[in-house]
């Protein structure tokens, strides 16, 4: 089987995978990092979002081999002793109910705030096109992202 090597949350990891192994499978099944979810399995819901070299992508539509040499950040890699400001804002603003979409939402939102440190409500809603939440109605997610953007220095 082909070998793959990448950096996940700052640590170098490697493994032998079938060519058809998806990045999300590699993370969940090989590395046992199950914070990244598989929701729709068709690149629509965004539950599987991770950062690849800083860009949020849907890891259910990327082969593990395509991530060779890349820097991956998953939800497990955000907290550093204390919660990342985005995670903290999601908790503070009750931006989750069942929590299934939350890892993808948080990763996607961090990508947004990195690109646009002070996003408007409309810009946040537009950005969340690729992240589906079936519980919250999005309002508290939007509030959390606005608050986190302020906390992150926007």
């Amino acid at each position: 089987m082909p070998a793959v090597s990448m950096t996940v949350n700052g640590k170098t990891v490697s493994g032998d995978v079938e060519a058809r192994t998806l990045l999300v499978q590699f993370l969940r099944e090989n590395l046992r990092m199950t914070g990244t979810r598989v929701g729709c399995d068709t690149a629509q819901c965004g539950a599987c979002c991770v950062l690849i070299d800083g860009d949020s992508v849907k890891s259910c539509s990327v082969l593990a081999l395509q991530a060779e040499g890349a820097e991956i950040t998953t939800i497990e890699g955000l907290a550093d002793g204390e919660l990342h400001p985005m995670q903290d804002a999601f908790r503070e603003h009750h931006a989750l109910q069942c929590g299934f979409c939350t890892p993808g939402m948080v990763i996607s939102a961090i990508d947004l705030v990195t690109r646009n440190p002070d996003p408007s409500e409309d810009q946040i809603r537009e950005w969340l096109e690729g992240n589906l939440c079936r519980c919250t109605g999005y309002h508290n997610i939007v509030k959390a992202i606005q608050a986190a953007a302020q906390a992150m220095g926007g």
Partner: peptide, 9 residues
């Protein structure tokens, strides 16, 4: 085109 994550790839 599509959403932010698709535009990233």
């Amino acid at each position: 085109i599509s959403d932010a994550q698709v535009r990233n790839r």
